[in-house]
């Protein structure tokens, strides 16, 4: 068994309104910054023991599909790194 960290990034699908990101962007603009767009995402770090990186990735994906992301509104990425 090897120790991995799976980094799961969950973000809204393109076209889904993100009012919190819009509010954050406006706040940055009020501070005098110039920016074209701002997107927010949730990131989860999962420490996993697995036989190999593929097995760790599969488990992280299953956890994401079951709970961390809502497929109706979210896309997600999983990155696996050995700890």
């Amino acid at each position: 068994m090897t120790a991995y960290t799976a980094t799961v990034t969950v973000r809204l699908k393109g076209g889904v309104l993100d009012p919190e990101a819009e509010t954050t962007q406006r706040a940055l603009e009020r501070l005098g910054f110039e920016l074209e767009d701002l997107r927010s995402a949730d990131q989860f770090e999962l420490d996993i023991e697995a036989d190999d990186a593929e097995a760790a990735g599969e488990r992280a994906e299953e956890m994401t599909e079951r709970l961390l992301a809502n497929p109706t509104i979210h896309d997600y990425d999983v990155d696996i790194e050995q700890r």
Binding site: L17, P19, E20, E22, T23, N70, T72, I73
Partner: peptide
């Protein structure tokens, strides 16, 4: 209900935030 897939769609952050 939506999260459990009993009903379609999702209820998420109000437009007003």
């Amino acid at each position: 209900g939506c999260e459990a897939r009993l009903t379609p769609g999702a209820f998420t952050t109000n437009e007003s935030a």
